[in-house]
Design a protein around this nucleic acid. Structure first.
Lengths: 130, 130
DNA sequence: AAATGAACAGAGTGTTCATGG
DNA sequence: CCATGAACACTCTGTTCATTT
């Protein structure tokens, strides 16, 4: 998949969101707008308010790369109140890619934490631990 | 100063570099290329290799905003081996702005660490402490 | 070759507009 | 009005080119 994990400085938003979306797709079968709402709620304490277009672009990318397939749910089906929605399911390829991606992102997030902790230590003294 | 501290997701590279450059200007009177070399060395373990243009653009911005003034050192002056270099000094305004900026960046870096730690916890279980 | 600077180009992302139910 | 999608525009940043010593 083409999404770059490493970019030298900090992890890209898209790569970060992808990790969350993959997890959400795996867990509960919800759809785009709900993913967005959930993420906004979770990140609110950190002042991070993702946009709907980033979510959709990430979902499109996952679809294009064959990690997930789309299933349309039409108005009237269970849980569909207003209009059609799109549910995402993993493909076989996607399951395997997710497993790998998750591992790679662990390394990447560790790297970013290292960089930020280094800056903390450089500018505000040693990191305090409880 | 116009550089945005917060951008919703993670801190921008420029804001991050600015914090380091201000500290280096305060500490030892060195010049652009040496700042770059020092930073590359320090961040090498984290796979981060800043570019010379980001460094200069940040220094230009600090100058434009009146936080620092430039002093040209000419070939032959003590420590100038090959050609002229530019040394940066704080202005009075710059000293005060740095103090403030440093405090703001602490908050911002804490926020970023919170976001990344949240992701770590969400995807790889609770944060391990020694 | 070292140091600085500027132009240019490409990636990343947010805002806005558009469409169908 | 909700859900999705696409177009567009702007910001950020890296690559390249230029100048001086």
């Amino acid at each position: 998949m083409e999404t770059e994990l490493k970019r030298g400085f900090l992890v890209r938003q898209r790569a970060f969101l992808k990790l969350y979306l993959l997890k959400m797709i795996e867990a509960n079968k919800r759809y785009g707008t709900q993913f967005l709402d959930d993420l906004r709620t979770e990140f609110k304490p950190y002042g991070y308010h993702p946009t709907h277009s980033e979510i959709y672009k990430t979902l499109h990318e996952l679809t294009r790369e064959g990690w997930v397939r789309r299933e349309k749910k039409l108005l009237g089906e269970p849980g569909v109140d207003f209009q059609e929605i799109i549910i995402y399911h993993f493909t076989e390829k996607g399951k395997q890619e997710y497993e790998l991606y998750r591992k790679q992102m662990k390394v990447e997030l560790d790297r970013c934490l290292g960089l930020l902790n280094q800056a903390m230590s450089d500018h505000y003294g040693p990191i305090k631990r409880k």
